[in-house]
């Protein structure tokens, strides 16, 4: 008798745990999918960011849902969106936490940072100030009464708010470490890269978001990393484009210039490589 696998000689009752070990990744995957379906399980990866930066679109894009003809741009997320996402061999529960200060956000942040013992990493979605205002009336008021007439003004305004929001998230990370929870990495995804996909502007964005840069944003990261320790907490910032759309503000327009699907795929590949290296 020719033995292909040494385990073939083992009695059948031993094969059950052997097969369970052999297919552990698939079993873990289906278990995580079941947990997501039941809305249970600890958060492994939390996706955070200000409202309208494209958190839901980002996860849909990573899932390949945006290629479907029936897919439409989502409305404001009112609740936490959970999904099971396979990175490498293992599947993680990814939770997209709404950007608005709501009861759902408050509870989700509490669950991810204070209760979950399996928080692996945090994805912070930024958009280099290209955040659109969803409410038309408020948008009009911002243009007419607040003096935010140009794209430059609104970007500056948004970048300041982003700093405030990011500071709060970093505080949550520091608090999580203080109580013995340990997210291992922070990935800053600079979404809407199609709006600044040019060598010079991409470099400017990189300087602004890079964990070792000198911008106000980088300083916040540095401060958090210094508190936690560089060896225990890894940080990276990458550009990304989950959906191509022009940015229009008060008749000014920034046209999308990603330069083809190839570049978008390169950005996506970069995302997976970065996460795999954490």
């Amino acid at each position: 008798m020719k033995l292909e696998n040494w385990s073939d000689i083992a009695p059948s009752f031993i094969k059950v745990p052997l097969n369970a070990y052999k297919y552990r990744h698939s079993l873990q995957k289906w278990w995580k999918h079941f947990l997501v379906y039941m809305n249970q399980g600890d958060t492994n990866i939390a996706v955070l960011g200000r409202p309208s930066v494209g958190k839901s679109v980002l996860t849909s894009y990573l899932y390949g849902e945006t290629n479907n003809l029936s897919w439409e741009l989502p409305e404001t997320s009112k609740d936490v969106e959970s999904s099971a996402f396979t990175l490498g061999n293992w599947t993680n529960i990814v939770r997209v936490i709404p950007g608005q200060t709501t009861n759902e956000r408050y509870l989700a942040i509490n669950e991810a940072f204070n209760k979950s013992s399996k928080l692996e990493g945090i994805i912070y979605v930024a958009d280099w100030g290209f955040t659109d205002v969803r409410d038309k009336i408020i948008k009009q008021q911002m243009i007419e009464q607040e003096g935010l007439e140009t794209i430059r003004d609104i970007r500056e305004f948004n970048l300041n708010l982003e700093l405030e929001d990011f500071k709060q998230i970093c505080k949550e990370i520091e608090k999580a470490y203080a109580i013995g929870k340990s997210p291992k990495w922070l990935l800053i995804i600079v979404n809407k890269a199609d709006l600044f996909f040019k060598d010079s502007t991409l470099n400017l964005a990189q300087k602004y978001y890079h964990p070792k840069g000198n911008s106000a944003f980088s300083k916040i990261i540095k401060s958090t990393v210094n508190i936690i320790g560089e060896q225990r907490f890894k940080c990276a910032a990458i550009p990304f484009c989950s959906f191509e759309k022009d940015f229009i503000w008060n008749n000014e327009k920034v046209v999308t210039k990603i330069g083809g699907e190839e570049n978008r795929k390169a950005l996506m590949k970069n995302f997976f490589t970065t996460v795999a290296n954490f």
Binding site: T101, T102, N103, R105, V133, R134, E146, L161
Partner: peptide, 29 residues
């Protein structure tokens, strides 16, 4: 939330905290 962002610049730290607390109590879903 859009209006909160506009007003945020004029708010004191305490007022910001109070508004955030009030908003975090509302279940929008």
């Amino acid at each position: 939330h859009s209006y909160k962002q506009v007003v945020y610049r004029d708010l004191s730290v305490v007022k910001k905290a109070v508004i955030d607390m009030r908003l975090s109590r509302i279940k929008f879903n």
